[in-house]
């Protein structure tokens, strides 16, 4: 049975595209057949993060407008033959596609893929509506910052109004050193506020920048963020995986602080 998952956040720059690339690649590494759809028409980036930008001939708008077949527009990943990308159009805008067309497309792709992942643009306008139209479930990405969390809360409300089956939270770019100092909200704080199931915590990791530079997702590597993404993939598949031991480094002081509270 295939599943359509939208990766969204509301706010820009919190790591939707990086998360899409890593979760998509990770699921393909776990032998699932995966297609990643970049729905950010006009500002495409998933192709660059995956290192496939030089292979684009047709795009999402071409498919929707019937200029080519879906199979012609799908780009096979360099490393994982189970992984495909449907790139977005660069010279068009969000109004080139409608929610109905997106739903039709994702339904069509269900026949051939286990997972259809949609990388959603920032904002709550047409691009967002397109991305969630055909989705069964959502991964909401946020960082532990007030602006990102506030936007995530709005998005969660909108997703609920659209009756998605399941909505899970990914906390991205957590900095344990700052959490320890008390200068960043911790995982519990964010979960308490947003009150949806947590599916992953990804530490802030400079290897992410390196991997984006190279166009090769970090998932599966030994880097902490790579492990965190792989764990998310296992949880997406419904497996129980313990959360990474980011907290262990929390140290004596903050534990003492908790006792005092």
């Amino acid at each position: 049975m295939s599943e359509v998952i939208v990766i969204t956040s509301g706010k820009g720059g919190v790591g939707k595209t990086t998360t899409s690339a890593n979760v998509g690649t990770g699921l393909a590494m776990l032998n699932k057949k995966v297609v990643l759809i970049d729905t950010d028409i006009g500002l495409r980036n998933l192709d660059v993060v995956l290192g496939l930008e030089n292979r684009i001939v047709y795009n999402l708008v071409d498919v929707v407008e019937g200029n080519c077949k879906v199979s012609q527009a799908l780009i096979k990943d360099k490393k994982y033959p189970n992984l495909f990308l449907l790139p977005s159009a660069q010279t068009r805008d969000k109004t080139s596609v409608s929610p109905e067309q997106m739903k039709k497309l994702t339904d069509e792709l269900r026949n051939d893929f286990d997972y259809i992942l949609l990388d959603c643009p920032a904002g709550i306008e047409q691009g967002f509506k397109n991305a969630i139209a055909g989705a069964d479930r959502a991964l909401v990405v946020t960082t532990p910052e007030v602006s990102a969390i506030r936007d995530a809360d709005r998005i969660i409300g909108l997703l609920a109004a659209n009756e998605l089956k399941q909505t899970d939270l990914i906390i991205n770019r957590l900095r344990m050193d700052m959490v320890k100092r008390g200068d960043m909200m911790n995982v519990e704080d964010v979960c308490e506020i947003l009150a949806i199931p947590l599916i992953g915590v990804v530490p802030d990791d400079e290897q992410i920048v390196v991997s984006t530079n190279q166009g090769e997702p970090l998932v599966g590597s030994n880097a902490l963020a790579g492990q965190a993404y792989m764990n998310i993939c296992h949880r997406v598949l419904g497996e129980e995986v313990e959360f990474l031991d980011l907290d262990k480094k929390e140290g004596v002081f903050s534990k003492l602080a908790k006792i005092f509270k």
Partner: peptide, 13 residues
């Protein structure tokens, strides 16, 4: 005919 840049030297970087 279509040619693309080599994968290890991505156009962008």
């Amino acid at each position: 005919a279509i040619g693309r840049s080599a994968d290890n030297e991505n156009g962008l970087f």
